[in-house]
Write a protein that binds this DNA or RNA. Structure first.
Length: 487
DNA sequence: TAGCTCGTTGGACAA
DNA sequence: TTTGTCCAACGAGCT
């Protein structure tokens, strides 16, 4: 009789059973599988998991643990430094090796490398799999063999290579049991921080976990996809897929999304629908692009991709930053966005752009401050996406907007939330203000404000900056930076 | 290799 | 009210 191999499958940002190549490979090898999750925020260095993400993770793990149980196995949860914990576990259960899905944050790459070396030294099996991306960051390159820094050619290359995207792996029908002698921590070891406690609201309910992720995809692909390219920009409508937190925690794989939507696209003769699906898949490729950049330019989590921006004259106005974080800027679209973030752990993409542009170009505060605030409060906080997004808005990242493109928070608000429906859903104090004035209450006649029961300065703040002046100042600082870095 | 084209999400102003 | 044009800059990526 052949002795079965014993494999620890270490789960990180791939909390699902479907299209889980690490798990599926161990299952196909007929190995005895020990599913493991490690709670180890200290290993995450300067980007330890934020409060909103913790809350999501707790629920996601709870559900993942249940689905593993339903297959006859048990998820082992341990706490401590990743390397020590795995090596101890390997000895404890006399494992023959470890399988895991790859992560691409600099600290995670470092951990994987060290783990592989340590396991190989012990003559054990160490295998990592692609569980998070359509393409590995090193599989896509320009014709010169360099990493891409512009999205469109990256997108075209991905399209050409899309035939290679593997079909999702099925989930194992059953799993072996895990001996009760192997101890596990409770999920309650994942503690929320006391301050700035993020709460679920009933206003925008989420359903974490693999089932919730599949439901979100099915709902979106039946309905939302048909007007995606227009509707995705409307925070007052439900035009986006809302799949981002599911993708971040790996409750669904991008391959599943890709194949599900390309299948629909192939079946329909409706060219508009095909275009809408392509518009959405383009966004999925933006996520790939973010990982491509994170992998090839890992310093960008702290430093600008364009070095010239190290010379930019950022301001250090603590009070302005505080007002932004507390939704007290006096610009309703910005404040509504921050409120949405604090109350629901999520912010509409268009509003993220407006709020980010306001922090950077109106308040002239360094993008890293905004990146850290988002990191702490978003349920979909993702180092690759967050870094790319903030650098894009700041103009210091890949494919960034030219310096003179500065969002006007009032015209953006008028364009994408014309009736102020989004604004008033998060700022009820402005409910009685007519749509004409909702985007810039400080311009409303006193009579109108009175009728709307608003006294500026007490019910709702005065604007903390004058946008036109702030814009001019930003442009002159960019000009200074260009002079300084000219050569 | 040198030159050419092009770039997720814009704004201001004029007609 | 909508549509068109310029803003003005630069480097990536291709041929």
């Amino acid at each position: 009789m052949v002795l079965k191999k014993k494999i620890i499958v270490w789960f990180r940002q791939d909390l699902r059973l479907n299209d889980q190549e690490a798990l599926w490979t161990a299952f196909q090898d007929d190995a005895i599988i020990i599913p493991l999750f490690i709670w180890s925020p200290k290993d995450e260095k300067k980007w330890p998991i934020g409060n909103a993400s913790r809350q999501w993770l707790k629920q996601s793990l709870e559900l993942f643990s249940d689905s593993i149980k339903s297959k006859g196995s048990r998820l082992i949860i341990r706490q401590g430094a990743v390397l020590d914990t795995i090596l101890e576990m390997v000895d404890e259960v006399k494992a023959d090796g470890v399988f895991w899905g790859r992560c691409y944050e600099p600290y995670n790459i470092d951990l994987s490398t060290k783990l592989k070396t340590a396991l190989k030294k012990k003559n054990l099996i160490a295998e990592s799999f692609n569980t998070r991306l359509l393409f590995e960051p090193w599989e896509i390159a320009t014709k010169q063999g360099n990493p891409f820094q512009v999205f469109t050619p990256f997108w075209r290359t991905c399209q050409k290579m899309s035939e290679n995207i593997k079909k999702p792996f099925p989930e194992p029908e059953t799993l072996n049991s895990v001996p009760s002698s192997i101890s596990s921590e409770s999920i309650s070891i994942i503690q929320l921080k006391e301050k700035n406690h993020w709460k679920f609201t009933t206003q925008r309910p989420w359903e974490p976990g693999e089932k919730g992720a599949v439901k979100a995809l099915e709902h979106f692909s039946k309905d939302g996809i048909n007007q995606y390219s227009e509707e995705r920009d409307r925070p007052d409508h439900q035009g986006t897929s809302r799949i981002s937190p599911h993708l971040h925690f790996g409750e669904i794989s991008p391959r599943t999304i890709w194949h599900h939507l390309t299948h629909i696209s192939k079946r329909t003769s409706n060219t508009q629908k095909k275009d809408e699906i392509e518009a959405y898949l383009r966004q999925v490729i933006w996520r790939e692009f973010a990982y491509h950049l994170l992998y090839h330019f890992p310093h960008t989590v702290e430093q600008p991709l364009r070095a010239a921006f190290n010379e930019f004259g950022w301001e250090q106005e603590k009070n302005l930053l505080k007002a932004w974080k507390e939704a007290k800027t006096g610009f309703p679209i910005v404040d509504a966005g921050i409120k949405e973030l604090l109350h629901s752990g999520w912010m509409h993409n268009r509003v993220r752009l407006i709020a980010a542009s306001f922090l950077i170009k109106d308040l002239l505060i360094h993008w890293i401050e905004g990146a850290r605030f988002f990191w702490e409060n978003l349920v979909d906080a993702d180092l690759a996406n967050n870094t790319m997004g903030w650098q894009w808005v700041a103009g210091c990242g890949a494919d960034a907007a030219p310096y003179f493109r500065i969002f006007n928070p009032v015209t953006q608000s008028q364009k994408f939330d014309p009736d102020g429906v989004y604004i008033t859903s998060w700022l009820p104090e402005l409910k009685k203000l007519p749509a004409k004035w909702i985007h810039s209450p400080w311009l409303a006649p006193l009579e109108v404000l009175k009728q709307a029961d608003i006294e500026l300065g007490s019910d709702y703040p005065y604007p903390i900056v004058d946008h036109d002046e702030a814009r001019k100042k930003a442009l002159s600082l960019f000009e200074e930076m260009r002079e300084k870095t000219k050569d």
